[in-house]
Design a protein around this nucleic acid. Structure first.
Lengths: 179, 179
DNA sequence: GCATGTGTAAAATGATCGTTTTACACTCTC
DNA sequence: GAGAGTGTAAAACGATCATTTTACACATGC
């Protein structure tokens, strides 16, 4: 496995499990099996590593969430949590731990959330045949809610979000027919 | 103002704005205008301070969220964000930064989320005249979603959550009439 | 009038932080 | 076979971390 890939994926695990600030560079280099000199050659700084982790996670996330239905969307979330556990949105956590003051991290967060919103807008069009901002916003909120509520409610959160999304879609469909 | 109250409220602001781990004890004592000796006499440790902040925030939160309707619930959230800004759930953030390994913090988080769930179950009974676990779960998810999505979508997140909750309640009401 | 309690200021504790440096080994390629 | 590139190990950097200690000031109540 490529050295940079290994570094970023072990860093992602440690950051996710123990927090960003709480994870020191010694722990990172030791877990990745590389020297600190190599780490800094590759990512420049700890903030650079954090941003690289987030951008890689964003790619991975959108590879997984590639279906065209709400069932696929929340199914992907369920799979994600089953494999990696649920500890809240890593982008928001990074943003919060850095007080929103680190540009590369704030940008990675904003980019990720923009793409998520676009993904959901696409799903809405497939589900009800037309764009619907209010419905897309609701599904985004349910997705965000499930992501965080799953940390203390487990799989029930994802189930509940999927069911609520289905009901809202059903409502939007019949509303579209009657008007 | 009482010295302990002042300490906890300034600590809450600093933790919320800059993150828990990133906020050092020197900064805390300086901002609160007390010596480090006094701080440790009052809260024992940094983890103790974090737990005290969370428990005080929980009290304040439930004082604000005391209405009996979804409009009151999301109205309270709107007020909260307008006054203090939206940076995600401080309980989940504390839990995440400590890797879930600090007992007093994990307990404060669990207690807060339990109370929130009970609050919402009560609102559901008032709104539709009977308990409804699925509806309560959905509103909890919308609330959690709005709390976090407000960090990057602002007030639109709270609006969207309130509207979606209203639609789900309307659906549950007519369902109750037809069955 | 002397403990007791509660506060301050400031230094010291030892550990850990992110980052850089020094010195050295291996493998390519021209 | 010299030089460039990429890696390691390990020490050093100065700063900052959470916490404790020392020394002192000002109340309170018995």
């Amino acid at each position: 496995m490529d050295i940079r890939t290994r570094l970023i994926s072990t860093a992602e695990q440690l950051f996710d499990r123990h927090g960003f600030t709480a994870t020191g560079m010694d722990r990172l280099t030791q877990a990745a099996g590389i020297s600190s000199r190599t780490l800094y050659k590759h990512v420049g700084s700890k903030n650079g590593l954090m941003a690289a982790v987030l951008n890689e996670r964003d790619r991975r996330f959108h590879r997984l969430v590639s279906g065209d239905s709400v069932d696929a969307l929340f199914g992907a979330l369920e799979t994600w949590f089953a494999e990696e556990g649920a500890r809240g949105c890593l982008f928001l956590r990074a943003w919060g731990e850095t007080g929103g003051n680190v540009q590369e991290i704030a940008e990675a967060m904003a980019r990720h959330k923009d793409r998520l919103r676009q993904r959901i807008e696409g799903i809405v069009v497939v589900e009800i045949g037309r764009p619907d901002d209010e419905l897309a916003e609701a599904i985004l909120l349910l997705f965000e809610g499930a992501t965080h509520a799953a940390t203390y409610r487990g799989g029930a959160a994802v189930d509940g979000a999927r069911r609520a999304a289905r009901r809202l879609i059903e409502g939007a469909r019949t509303q579209g027919l009657s008007s």
